[in-house]
């Protein structure tokens, strides 16, 4: 095998490993929320993982700053909430989870994810 091919092979393996590590290997730290939290929607959700207390009303204030069509809705499937997020407007979603566990919230097409951990 010629040198250029070996270089491409090695680079390919490294790139694949990088993609795996960068996108799939990240560990999320949960942000602890007591009453309310501003979630900025810009290429994803930040904070992405939040932990909220069980049985209490928590306000999630979604503020979308990203014009991507995919992010124009947020879906909290476990809470039966699908809400349109107008650009640069605060949309308040109230949840009062009764069971503890991890609940995923996503964009309208299920591409972007966030997590609500109920403790």
């Amino acid at each position: 095998m010629s040198l250029d091919k070996i270089i491409v092979l090695v680079a390919g393996v490294l790139v694949s490993w990088f993609i795996y590590w960068f996108f799939l290997g990240k560990k999320d730290k949960a942000v602890s929320v007591s009453d309310e939290v501003d979630i900025i929607v810009d290429g994803g959700y930040s904070p992405e993982v939040i932990s909220v207390p069980k049985g209490k009303i928590t306000k999630l204030n979604f503020i979308r700053k990203d014009p991507t069509a995919c992010l124009e809705e947020v879906v909290l499937g476990d809470f039966k909430i699908r809400r349109a997020l107008p650009l640069n407007q605060k949309v308040v979603i109230e949840i009062s989870p009764e069971t503890s566990g991890e609940f995923v919230y996503t964009c309208g097409m299920g591409m972007y994810h966030g997590k609500i951990i109920v403790k």
């Binding site: 990240k26 290429g43 991507t68």
Partner: peptide, 19 residues
């Protein structure tokens, strides 16, 4: 530009999408 913008903000979150 919309694709680039969306990609950059997604990369910041270590996520990737169609864009």
């Amino acid at each position: 530009l919309t694709f680039y913008r969306a990609t950059i903000s997604a990369i910041k979150h270590r996520t990737a999408n169609m864009d």
